[in-house]
C-alpha cells in the first residue's frame, strides 16, 4: 500500500455566526485506505464533508485533494471523486436505471454500459426497472453508492451510508465498502457515529468531537492507545501493596484487590515472580482492558453516542 496522501486538510475551519462547527482540522487520508471519520451526531462531520466537496466554503483553511487545492481545481478534482452526501439521494419517481441515466448525463459519460456495470457492483441488476419509491432502504442506499461510483472515482466520500438501515442492510453496505480499495482501487472516506461500524471496516480512524480532531491514525494505533490495568487478588493485600511499592510499582489498593496501571507484559511477569518468592498466594490475576467503545466514550466523555 502506497503512503501517498489522497486527501488533506490544513486547519480547516467553519464558523456559523459565533459557533465554530469545525475547528482547525488537519485530516490526512492515505491512498488505498478506508478512513473512518467518527464522531457523535453534531460533531461537525457533515459540515466537514460539505467543505470537502465544495458544497460549503471554509471560513479558514484549505482542502487538498490529489495534492491540488480544491478551490482552484474544483471541477478537475470532482471528476475523480464519487460521493454520497445526503441520504436519501435519488429521484423516487424514476426507476433505478433512470436515476443512473440522469447521473450519466451529468457526468457526460458516453457509454451507457457503465450504468449496468455499477448496477452489477451494488447488486441491483434485477431490480433496475423498478421505481425507486418501491425500493427498500438498503436498496436505495446501494443505489446511492452506485451513483457515487458512476465516474470511476479514485476517492469515495460517503456520509453515514448505513444510517437508518437494518442489520442486514448494514452488512451489505459494509461488504460493499470493504471491497472498494481491493477490487476497484478506490480510497474510501466514510463518516459514522458508530464506533462498532468503523471498527469493522476502517483501516484508519479520525475522531471528531465538537469540531476538533481528537485522534487520527490507524485503527491499530487507536487500540494500542488504550490503557489497561492489572488486577490482582492476593491473600495479604496490604503487605503485598507495600512490597510492590517498595520495588517501584504504582499500586492502588481497592479492598482485597490491587490495581497496577498500564503494566507491560514484562512487568506482569516480574510482579508475579516477586509475590510468589515472598510467599503470597495469588487468587486471581486479570488484565482489565477497556473496549475500544469505552476508549472512544472516554475521549468524547460527555456526549452520548450510538443508537
Amino acid at each position: 500500500m502506497s503512503e501517498e496522501t489522497v486527501l488533506r486538510t490544513n486547519q480547516l475551519t467553519k464558523v456559523y455566526g459565533k459557533e465554530t462547527v469545525v475547528d482547525h482540522l488537519d485530516l490526512e487520508v492515505k491512498r488505498g485506505s478506508i478512513y473512518g471519520f467518527l464522531g457523535p451526531n453534531g460533531a461537525g462531520k457533515t459540515t466537514t464533508i460539505r467543505m470537502l466537496l465544495g458544497l460549503a466554503r471554509p471560513t479558514e483553511g484549505e482542502v487538498l485533494i490529489f495534492g491540488k487545492n480544491f478551490q482552484e481545481y474544483r471541477l478537475s478534482i470532482l471528476e475523480r471523486v464519487g460521493s454520497l452526501v445526503e441520504t436519501p439521494s435519488y429521484y423516487s419517481h424514476l426507476t433505478g436505471y433512470e436515476n443512473l441515466e440522469v447521473v450519466r448525463r451529468l457526468y457526460r459519460i458516453p457509454e451507457k454500459v457503465r450504468i449496468d456495470e455499477v448496477l452489477e457492483i451494488v447488486g441491483l441488476t434485477d431490480t433496475k426497472h423498478k421505481k425507486v419509491k418501491n425500493y427498500s432502504l438498503g436498496m436505495k442506499q446501494r443505489l446511492g453508492i452506485a451513483t457515487a461510483l458512476m465516474n470511476r472515482p479514485e476517492l469515495l466520500i460517503l456520509d453515514e451510508p448505513t444510517n437508518g438501515l437494518d442489520p442486514s442492510g448494514i452488512q451489505e453496505i459494509r461488504e460493499l465498502i470493504r471491497q472498494m480499495p481491493r477490487q476497484h482501487d478506490v480510497t474510501v472516506f466514510v463518516s459514522s457515529h458508530l464506533l462498532s461500524e468503523v471498527e469493522q471496516i476502517a483501516t484508519d480512524v479520525g475522531i471528531l468531537h465538537r469540531g476538533r480532531l481528537l485522534f487520527q491514525g490507524s485503527l491499530q494505533s487507536l487500540r494500542s492507545r488504550q490503557i489497561g490495568s492489572l488486577v490482582m487478588e492476593v491473600d495479604r493485600p496490604e503487605e503485598a501493596a507495600r512490597l510492590l511499592r517498595s520495588r517501584g510499582f504504582d499500586v492502588i489498593q481497592q479492598g482485597r484487590e490491587l490495581h497496577v496501571e498500564d503494566p507491560s507484559s514484562q512487568k506482569v511477569g516480574e510482579i508475579q515472580q516477586l509475590l510468589a518468592l515472598e510467599g503470597f498466594v495469588i487468587h486471581r490475576l486479570t488484565n482489565d482492558q477497556p473496549s475500544l467503545e469505552q476508549a472512544f466514550l472516554e475521549m468524547v466523555k460527555d456526549e452520548a453516542i450510538g443508537s
Binding site: 452526501v85 445526503e86 457526468y107
Partner: peptide, 15 residues
C-alpha cells in the same frame, strides 16, 4: 430538494 439530489448534483464536476 426532496430527493437530496441538489447537494449530490452540486458535488459533481459541474459548474
Amino acid at each position: 430538494y426532496q430527493s437530496g439530489m441538489w447537494k449530490q448534483s452540486l458535488a459533481m464536476p459541474l459548474a
